[in-house]
């Protein structure tokens, strides 16, 4: 049962991830990316017992960030004709860079790929809000606070960039 569920969910997520790249229409790419996030959230919730992570993944990525992506695509009205013609040299460079990234990923993960056990151990109640909150505010308080300061600075930066003229303010 778990196996079938895992396989079908993984198939959908891999298929939609591939479709993100191969869709001609950027609108479809984004919608497939949303689908990918959903299947990932499904993995978190079902196989890791991390409901909170799953739901936050949906709220933040599918619900907020991807909507902004859609906004941009809708307003830019991207299509084949308006797509800039990339020169051959940058295409080759992209292929080399991508291939090297794949190599690094593969060598880093090659020991992990054949260890399927953790996928099925529903990791207890670690993903519940209560436990997560206790761990975050107890053991990992300083990293948590530092990353929140990082977010704050990103927000301030976005506001700064968004303002046309600082003096008029």
């Amino acid at each position: 049962m778990n196996n079938i569920l895992f396989l079908s969910l993984s198939l959908v997520s891999i298929f939609s991830a591939i479709m993100v790249i191969f869709s001609k229409n950027p609108m479809y790419s984004i919608l497939f990316l949303v689908l990918t996030f959903f299947t990932l959230a499904g993995h978190f919730a079902i196989f890791l017992g991390a409901e909170f992570l799953a739901i936050v993944n949906i709220i933040v990525y599918a619900g907020a960030i991807m909507v902004l992506f859609l906004f941009v695509v809708m307003l830019l009205n991207l299509n084949k004709e308006s797509e800039p013609n990339t020169p051959m040299i940058s295409k080759i460079a992209a292929i080399i860079a991508g291939g090297m990234f794949l190599l690094v990923l593969f060598s880093a993960l090659t020991n992990q790929i054949y260890a399927p056990e953790p996928l099925y151990t529903k990791a207890g109640e670690i993903g519940l809000v209560k436990n997560l909150g206790k761990i975050l505010f107890d053991e990992y308080l300083i990293p948590f606070e530092i990353s929140s300061v990082l977010f704050l600075s990103a927000m301030v930066g976005a506001v700064m960039l968004g303002k046309k003229d600082l003096k008029q303010g």
Binding site: L31, V56, I58, I59, G63, V67, L70, M74
Partner: peptide, 25 residues
């Protein structure tokens, strides 16, 4: 009765935007 019920509501609501956006586009 899931332990993140209210977040579930928010997740579904935030997905609801897609219906309007996709239809409109």
């Amino acid at each position: 009765d899931i332990n993140i019920g209210i977040l579930y509501v928010f997740a579904v609501v935030s997905i609801g935007v897609y219906g309007i956006m996709i239809g409109g586009w």
